[in-house]
Amino acid sequence: MENTLWPLIGGVFIGLSAILLMLSIGKIAGVSGIAWGAFTRETDRDDRSWRWLFLLGIVAGAFLLHLITGKPIPEVANTPVKAVIAGLIVGIGVKLGNGCTSGHGVCGISRLSARSIVATVIFMATAIVTVAVSQNL
């Protein structure tokens, strides 16, 4: 455990973000759901605008964190084929499963939602198995 302080602080910020979004506009801070609503035409213009601003905030927030704290920018693994296949599978999965780490893992578990708890156990399990298999091939 080289440093548990960064993860702890990061988690609190993610929690504060979820609380603010619920308190202000009554929405669940689930990134995949928010992104889907931003990219689709199923939502109206007013609905899309807050979603795009939330997504813009995520990118700007990451930028500010590295700028302010000087935390080194992580190296991006240069495996483009793996990345796009993974991206495709993640996209299909979060759409079918109605959520990802934030919507199910953080907000859903905090609401003690049975669907979210089941989803989180399943995606943690398949992620662990995938890493176990791919690291040992």
């Binding site: 995520i58 993974a86 990802c100 199910h104 398949t126 662990i128």
Partner: peptide, 21 residues
């Protein structure tokens, strides 16, 4: 759908290391 979706998401997450956020 929930079970299959979550399972696929985990596979994609483990494959490269990114979840959507």
């Amino acid at each position: 759908r929930l079970v299959i979706g979550a399972a696929l998401f985990g596979i994609g997450w483990g494959l490269y290391g990114y979840c959507p956020g």
